[in-house]
């Protein structure tokens, strides 16, 4: 096994210094080293997007990155997007519009949707579908996920200042 590498990352606002094996995937670092199990592994081949997190403000599939590639970066996971008492509008949208069933795809879906709304605060239905194409859900049939994102966009538009998570 290769020699371990020192990395420094800020995850959900907390600075972590870790020694990691160079081939350790970011998703395993988050789940197993930091215990942030809200980020899920669904497909192992970067199709399903269940592992989506924000890296320096952009949505990435954390199973396509090594932890060492995140060195020096700031990461937001689902646990850091909002809190139970103060949900991010996208989190609220998925809850209110029943945009989830088994919930396994939900964290990744929410992170991808939050990224979309950062870039495009008022997406059309077509743009929502296109932006989330890289996230798979096996339960809902997607209809309510689109509605959840629309809910969030409206909510964010109504409240100037409710800005992005990053």
């Amino acid at each position: 096994m290769a020699e371990k590498v020192q990395i420094k990352v800020v995850v959900n606002g907390v600075e972590h210094h870790s020694e990691v094996e160079p081939r350790l995937l970011l998703v395993h670092y988050l789940r197993e080293t930091l215990g942030l199990t809200g980020t899920h592994v669904g497909c192992d081949t970067s199709q399903c997007g269940a592992c989506t997190v924000h890296l320096d403000g952009q949505a990435v599939k954390s199973c396509t990155l090594f932890a060492v590639q995140a060195d020096g970066s700031s990461i937001t996971t689902i646990e850091g997007l909002g809190s139970v008492d103060s949900l991010h509008p996208v989190q609220e949208g998925f809850w209110e519009m029943h945009g989830l069933q088994c919930g396994f795809c939900t964290p990744g879906m929410i992170m991808a949707a939050a990224d979309l709304l950062n870039r495009n605060p008022q997406p059309s239905e077509e743009e929502i579908r296109h932006a989330l194409e890289g996230n798979l859900c096996r339960c809902t049939g997607y209809h309510n996920i689109v509605r959840a994102v629309q809910y969030a966009a409206n909510k964010m538009a109504g409240k100037v200042g409710v800005a992005a998570d990053d």
Partner: peptide, 17 residues
């Protein structure tokens, strides 16, 4: 909404692994 919706959207809902 789903009984565990709050846990799901905040990443706190636990699965076996």
């Amino acid at each position: 909404p789903h009984e565990s919706a709050r846990e799901h959207v905040t990443g706190r809902a636990l699965y076996t692994d």
